[in-house]
Design a protein around this nucleic acid. Sequence first.
DNA 1: GCGCAGTCTTGTCACTGTCAAGATTCGGGC
DNA 2: GCCCGAATCTTGACAGTGACAAGACTGCGC
Lengths: 193, 193
Amino acid sequence: MSSQRPYHHGDLRRALVAEALEVIASEGPNAVSLRALARRAGVSHAAPAHHFGDRAGLLTVIAVDGYRRLADELDRATDLRDLGGRYVAFALAHPAHFQVMFRPELLDGDDAELAAARAATRERLARGVAAREAHEPEVGTLAAWSLAHGLATLLLTGNLPTLEGLDPREVFHAVSHHPLLRLAPGEGTDAPG
Amino acid sequence: MSSQRPYHHGDLRRALVAEALEVIASEGPNAVSLRALARRAGVSHAAPAHHFGDRAGLLTVIAVDGYRRLADELDRATDLRDLGGRYVAFALAHPAHFQVMFRPELLDGDDAELAAARAATRERLARGVAAREAHEPEVGTLAAWSLAHGLATLLLTGNLPTLEGLDPREVFHAVSHHPLLRLAPGEGTDAPG
DNA sequence: GCGCAGTCTTGTCACTGTCAAGATTCGGGC
DNA sequence: GCCCGAATCTTGACAGTGACAAGACTGCGC
C-alpha cells in the first residue's frame, strides 16, 4: 500500500522466533500460526517456510535454544538444591521455551542439534546430582529431576494458583526443606548444625 | 458396507470419546480432529458438535473422566509411597486422559464439572499425604505431588527411554527409596517415632 | 557488470473448526 | 393409534490453516 517495505525483511528469522515466543508464552504452542506470524512481521504467508521448513522446524529451533539456555543456567548451580531452584526458575522465566522443549510431538525428532542440546542439558543435570550423591546417582538424578520438573510443570499449567506470584526459586527451596525430602546440601537429616 | 446406516448412530457420544482417546494416546491431543472422528464413526462432519459443542468440549469431557478415574485410583492407596506409585501408574495406563487433564488451554475453563472433579482429585492427594505427614501438610502435598507428577510427565514425554518397558509403579518405588528422599512409609531414617 | 544463491511473493490445494438451517427419528402424552 | 416436541444428525457455507510449486526480486562475490 503506502509504505512499500523493502523486499527483504532483513532479520525475519529472528523476528519470527521472537513473535512465536510471545504467542507461546501467552496462549501455548497450539496457538502458533505461521501465517499469523508472517502477517505480524509484514511478510507474505509463505515466507516463514523458507527459514524453518515447517511448523515443527520453527518450534525445534526454539526448543534447541531453550535447552542451551537451561544448560547454561544449570552450570551456575552451587549445590543440589540450587540446581532444582534454577530449573524451576528457568521454566517460569522462559515458559515458551520450557513448554516446547517437553512436547516431542511438536518437534522434528530427527534434528541433530536438538538431540545434542538435549543430551548436553541432561548431562548437566546428572553431573549436578552426582556431585552430592554418590549412591545410585542415576536414580538420584531421576528423583531430583522429577521433583523439579513436576513442580515447574504444575506451576506453569496453573495448577497452583495459590503460589502464583511467589519467587519460584523460593517455592522450590520451601519444598526441598520439607521433612519428606532430604535435598539439603551437606546437612544431615536431623543435625543441621 | 452398502447397508445404509440408520439415521441415528445410537451411541455416538461414547464412540467419539473412545476414538479420541486412541488418537490422543498415539499422537497427542493436537492430532484430534472432530471431522476425522466423525468420519471414522460414519457420521457427518458436524455431528460431534451436537454432543460436545466444540473441540474444547470434547476434551473437557475426557479430562473430567480422567480426574474421576484418578480420584478412584488414589482412594485405594495404602500409604504415601503407594499413592505416588498409583499416580504414576495411572498416567501411563491412561496417557490420553492424563495429557488432557494438565493442558488447561485445551479445555473449557468455565466447566463446573471439570472444576469439581479436579478439586475432588486434589483433595484425595492432600488427604493421602496428610495421613502420614503432620508437619506442614500443604508443603508436603506439593512435594509428593511434584515428585509423582514430574516422573509421570518425564516418562510420558519419552524423556526416559531407558525405563520404557518397566512397571511405572516399581520405578516410582525405586525413586522413593533413594537416600535423597524420605517417602518410606512408617520407617524413619533415624528417628521413626 | 554478471551471475548465482539466498530471500521473499503469489497462487493453489486439502484440511480444519464453527455456525446456520433443515431433515429425520425417538419418546411421551393422549 | 397418533401427534408433537425434543433430541439427533445432515447439508452447506465461511474463514482460517500448513504445505507445496513456481516465479520474482536482491545482495554479494567475482
